[in-house]
Amino acid sequence: MHKINVTELCKFLHNEFSVSLEPLSQLKEIFLCDLDENEPNTLNWCSKDNIDWNTMKAAVLIAPSNIKIPMNCKTQVVKVERPRLVFAKILENFFNDITIHDISESAKIGTNCQIHSGVRIGHNCVIGDNVIIGKNSIIDHGVIIQKNTQIGKQCMLNANCIIGGHGFGYEKVEEDYIRIPHIGNVVIGDGVEVGALTCINRGTLGSTLVNNGVKIDDSSFIAHNVNVGKNTIICSHVVICGSVQIGKNSWIAPGVMVRDGITIGESATLGMGAIVTKSVDAQTIVFGNPARKKI
């Protein structure tokens, strides 16, 4: 189990959230576990108030502010508005899951690149010419970043993703196909995360845009000239075809496919597995094949 010094935990909760944690008698370290494990001397959290207090063994439970605590409860309950957020901040403060600490000698970096301070690049990465990587960004092992790509600060590109690959475009001539060169680039904003094995293709002439705060899960595909709006979430195994415009704060669930050239409005939700063939209005939920509005 992972463990945290109790004194340090108390200081962190007080300074970060103005939450007081009473001293835990004879307990210098507290362990982390999943809620269903529910072991003694552990720190845990829950998002709902339907706790089985008869089986609760955790020393500390981070819980919703409306939870009702039974009398003689042996677990110290810390009430907060957003338990999951508090728990995430604890993990962020006390643990680090990043294993890359510098620029690997095996990384191949092209000419005229701008690699800003704090950037970490893993083993066997390939960085093309004229690439810009912003401050404190992390490039995981095996990532390929094609030429002219621009990446903002504090981004995370996970293992084996491809940024700036050639777009899929052909013109049929009799019994043959002529490939259309894609000579644009990819521009990624600040605080963006791109999942492992995800591909983001460069624009045909202009840019494929992934704006600030976007999070893309593993094994997804973003085609040429797509514009992904600020703080949008794209889950795993999503396919976004060429020139799609996605409004900010949208949510695209796993397995969604979006046809080329349409617009997804701000704060829209595309349900799991939806096949989206028409534009979606802002603040609208769609699902199904073909995707239709939730009533």
Rank of each mutant, 00 (worst) to 15 (best):
G110T: 05
I62M: 00
C10T: 14
V256K: 04
M71F: 11
G122D: 12
K48Y: 12
E29L: 01
K293Q: 15
I151T: 09
I138V: 15
I222P: 13
Q26H: 14
G288T: 12
L35H: 01
M257I: 13
V126C: 06
I103N: 10
T232L: 04
K153D: 07
L91W: 01
I252N: 09
N72M: 08
G142P: 08
M71H: 15
L209W: 11
I200A: 10
I178W: 06
G265H: 01
A268P: 05
T208E: 06
N201C: 13
L85R: 10
G152Q: 04
E29R: 12
V239L: 10
I144Q: 10
T263V: 14
G271C: 10
V19R: 07
D49P: 00
E8T: 10
E16G: 03
T42Q: 02
N38H: 09
A253G: 09
I144G: 00
A63G: 07
V228R: 04
K230P: 03
V19S: 12
K74T: 15
F31N: 12
I139D: 08
P181C: 01
G247K: 02
R259S: 09
V276G: 03
G195D: 07
D36L: 11
V86D: 08
Q245C: 03
I262R: 04
T284G: 10
S267P: 04
L157W: 00
D217V: 06
C241F: 02
V126R: 04
C235H: 03
K89L: 11
T99R: 14
I216W: 02
A291H: 09
G184C: 05
I62R: 01
I262A: 08
I233G: 07
T111Y: 05
N227Y: 08
R259F: 11
V239M: 11
K68G: 03
P181V: 01
N124C: 05
L209F: 13
N112P: 01
K3M: 14
D176G: 06
L85V: 15
E175G: 10
S18M: 07
F12D: 13
D34L: 09
N72Q: 15
D218R: 05
N130H: 14
T55G: 14
N289T: 15
V280R: 03
P64S: 08
N15T: 14
W45K: 05
E16C: 10
Q146S: 11
V244C: 02
F95V: 08
N212S: 08
